[in-house]
Amino acid sequence: MKEITAGKSGLPAVAYLFLVGIAGWWIPGAGHWLIGRPKRAAIIFFSIAFAFVLGIWFGSIAVIDASTPWYWAQMLNSPAVAYLAHLSGSVYHLESYGKPREMGEIYTGIAGMLNLLCIVNAVYVAHCKNIKEQS
């Protein structure tokens, strides 16, 4: 039985899709870069990084608070967000209230959800490429 692999990468198709998804989560845009779409990767990286940085600029890194539901949306930006949550909560004990916190949570949360959209798109395109190469 012939093993299904993902194009030039030589990886099994499912492992390749998993790699694309994980790369896109660790670094926004990396999933698109892996599937050979560098322009889109750069646009996604700079846009999401801009929104995330602007969010923590507005409300400080205290907006990344593991006890709020926003944290799960923020975590979609990158696993590095967990380290920022550790810094703001356990190391510096920072607090942020009111409008700046609200704006910070909205910016960082929406940046994370946009990254999820990009991850799903990168995995879908990689899957379509696999099917095309096999047929």
Partner: peptide
């Protein structure tokens, strides 16, 4: 406005 711009850019990029 910056957030709307980011949403528009990322959406159109994909």
């Amino acid at each position: 406005l910056p957030l709307i711009a980011v949403i528009a850019i990322v959406y159109k990029a994909i």
